[in-house]
C-alpha cells in the first residue's frame, strides 16, 4: 500500500487537501485491511488440529489415512524452516526457490498418498465385508 504524504509546502495557506484525504484514507485502510496471508496460514493450523483431534477420537478413520492426515503436519512443519532459509539465503519467497519448494511440497504429496491408500483399503475391505453378509 502506498501512503501519500500530504504536501504541506503547497503555495496556498491551506494544506493540500486531496493529499490529506488520501493519507487519512490510506491510514484507515491500513487499520481495516484484511489479515495477511501469513496470519491466515498460521490461523488455519488451529482448526486442522481440531480436525485431527476429533478424527482420532472418532476411531472411525482407516489407520493409514489417519497417519496421512497427521503427515500433513510434517509438511506444515517443514515449510516453516524452508521458508526462513529461502528468505535468509536467497532473499526470496519459498515458492521462488525451486529445490526448496519441491522438497517441502513432496511431504504433502506423501501425506495425500497415505490418505488415498488408507481409504482405498477401507473401500476394498468394506466391499468384501458387504459381500459376505449379503
Amino acid at each position: 500500500m502506498t501512503v501519500v504524504a500530504p504536501n504541506l509546502s503547497s503555495p496556498g495557506l491551506l494544506p493540500d487537501l486531496p493529499a490529506l484525504v488520501s493519507l487519512s484514507g490510506s491510514l484507515l485502510l491500513a487499520h481495516i485491511s484484511l489479515p495477511s496471508k501469513d496470519a491466515l496460514f498460521a490461523l488455519s493450523l488451529f482448526p486442522y488440529l481440531g480436525f485431527l483431534w476429533f478424527l482420532t477420537r472418532s476411531r472411525q478413520a482407516p489407520r493409514l489415512a489417519l497417519i496421512g492426515f497427521y503427515t500433513t503436519l510434517v509438511f506444515v512443519g517443514v515449510t516453516i524452516p524452508a521458508g526462513i532459509y529461502a528468505r535468509v539465503v536467497y532473499q526470496q519467497a519459498l515458492a521462488n526457490v525451486d529445490w526448496l519448494h519441491g522438497s517441502a511440497e513432496v511431504f504433502l504429496t506423501l501425506a495425500n498418498i497415505l490418505i488415498v491408500l488408507g481409504f482405498r483399503q477401507a473401500v476394498l475391505d468394506q466391499r468384501a465385508r458387504n459381500r459376505e453378509t449379503s
Binding site: 491466515l40 488455519s44 480436525f51 472411525q60
Partner: peptide
Amino acid sequence: VTLQASTTVLGNVTLMVAAWVLW
C-alpha cells in the same frame, strides 16, 4: 495467495466440523 490462505482456513474449519460429526 490470500485467496489460497482464506480457503485453507475455511477448508480446515469444514474438516473439523465433519470430524466432529464423525465423532
